[in-house]
Design a protein around this nucleic acid. Structure first.
Lengths: 339, 339
DNA sequence: ATGAAAGCGCTAACAT
DNA sequence: ATGTTAGCGCTTTCAT
């Protein structure tokens, strides 16, 4: 375990002061060409690699952005990581990951870990539970934080998809095709995405002149298995719906399974549209008509906002609430081709 | 920007030495019940949060594991993160990500960044290019590193899926059904997964008593679009294959698209099996018969191996090469139901 | 059982 | 333009 090369080693080798080495490494003050050359040579001779930990301790910034969300299930996880990496190529940021597993206590642990690691900023997707404690702590501290996907607290910058109009549009689309028994598969309680999409469903019905019927709404809890069960129940009723609007992609999978098991054909027997695009929604038979959210755009918007806060360019700015528009992808499962 | 609470603050508040605070926080030496109580009280009164950066500088370990792979495309990214997080709950590790974008120069940057951040270990999926320089540097240094997915260098611990027998099995399965013109869609050049699966293809043919024909092999470069084009070309030939073995899931998507465009039905007109399961391979019509690799198991095996190296429990151990068995998922696209 | 003090490798005043 | 030096907040020997 040979001792790593330090800045002092480089300074000695080049015959200059440690601070001179620091300044050529960081470009923080003018250094004569002669010395700079000696230093650079010493650096490459010794194979010196700056110790970021020491630098962080001295400067009290880590250039680390913490990500708190469920790694396994949150669709923003990968794009957020990619956005930070991309920003990192410009500003030197990297990401530290802390899995919240979508549970309040794990979320709290995650945040504490990141705070302890002195990250410069945090990107967080709030869990559904009562996470007031975590958010309070974050709001009271001075680590810039941006909330992604779910709108939960106006003390923070928040970026998410537009839900209400998007869902209303799906409903109206089905209504235009003559459907009057349109079911809605709702997500997990306590998430803004869930409530906003539910609102959109009612709004769409209203605009289409259709009455809201409670028994056409069922909860899939944002999970494929639950959705499958709910929809099976729905189909078994005396008066089943003629169309379904699924609240997110996990649940859409569940719907598909339920439909296949019951032998119903989409869109012939029942129409299906959903919020969220599947990775390969086009190879399904029929191809799915969906409202797609631009995950990458949401992620990079959030990260850019965060970095502006971190670098102080947006110090005094009020917390932002940004909704990103979705895209309607018109394929076959709505049944339009049949008309 | 109030100054964060330090250990010195806690010590002052509790009226003890800083070292005492340190020892109660870390449990590194006995402290009398009386003092411990005072310290604990001071900690909660002040809201003290240990500064991991300072601790890292003092102990020269960061409890950080670096991940180098393409965040966007590598299927091990998420399970590796999850595995590290899970290990973290036991040993305090977190992950820092460095996106290689599957390109040699970005990979080198990524590794340097992680080294500079003094991560305790690295999980890396080697790119296809000539990355000898990076691996040499890693092998020469003393940061434990484990390679995942692709076997590229025996100086490191390596964990990946079993490719050869798995692919041979797929071929044999098709041969059993009477196919004698079985095409193979191969992945990107320069990856061990690609060459091993190609070997498996030939092995399968051989075992089935079928001759190898060069023009039944085409490259999809591990990408859906390329695969789609290749397969379209394949189908346009005077003597098209009666079955296709796809080398990975991206390419399987491409195959599906090509088949749909050409109006061919699976498995009636052509059989299709693939290496890798799709997330929702069961809702496709027909459901896909595939060889699935246990990504989570591979990821956690790699991480556990790495942590054992880091903690020194495997100091003297020779580099390990671990192949994890795949699982055959028998669904409909192979055409068995037809027989 | 507790405290004092010397680093860990860097940055950033403060000299000159 | 360059060097000297005092921290950054912790851990860990060495005393007591």
């Amino acid at each position: 375990m040979r001792r790593p090369v330090t800045m002092a080693d480089v300074a000695a080798q080049a015959g200059v002061a440690e601070s001179t080495v620091s300044h050529v490494v960081n470009g923080t003050r003018p250094v004569s060409a002669a010395l700079r050359a000696r230093v650079l040579e010493a650096i490459s001779e010794t194979g010196y690699s700056p110790n970021t930990v020491a630098r962080s301790l001295a400067t009290s910034n880590t250039h680390l952005i913490g990500i708190v969300m469920s790694a396994l299930t949150n669709r923003f996880f990968v794009p957020v990581v990619a956005a930070i990496d991309s920003a990192g190529r410009r500003h030197g940021y990297s990401s530290v990951l802390a899995d919240s597993r979508d549970r309040v206590d794990d979320e709290a642990d995650a945040v504490n870990m990141l705070l302890s690691r002195r990250v410069d900023g945090i990107v967080l997707t709030p869990t559904a539970g009562d996470r007031a404690a975590v958010l309070d702590k974050l709001a009271a501290g001075d680590v810039p934080t941006v909330l992604v996907d779910r709108f939960a607290d106006d003390r923070f910058d928040q970026v998410g998809p537009e839900n209400t109009e998007a869902t209303a549009y799906l409903v109206q689309h089905l209504a235009t095709l003559g459907h009057d028994r349109i079911a809605f598969l709702s997500g997990r309680k306590g998430l803004s995405t869930t409530s906003e999409r539910a609102t959109g469903y009612r709004l769409g019905l209203e605009r289409a002149g259709l009455a809201f019927e409670q028994d056409l709404v069922c909860s899939g809890k944002s999970a494929a298995a639950t959705a499958e069960r709910s929809v099976s129940g729905l189909l078994a009723r005396r008066n089943p719906p003629t169309a379904i609007v699924s609240g997110d992609k996990e649940m859409t999978i569940g719907v598909l399974r339920a439909l296949q098991r019951s032998g119903m054909r989409v869109p012939d027997d029942i129409a299906l549209v959903g919020y969220d695009d599947l990775d390969f929604g086009d190879v399904l038979q029929p191809a799915l008509t969906v409202m797609a959210q631009p995950v990458s755009e949401i992620a990079s918007t959030a990260v850019n906002l965060l970095i502006r806060r971190i670098t102080g360019k947006a110090k005094a700015m009020d917390p932002q609430r940004v909704q990103i528009a979705t895209t309607f992808i018109h394929r076959e499962s709505c049944g339009c081709a049949l008309r």
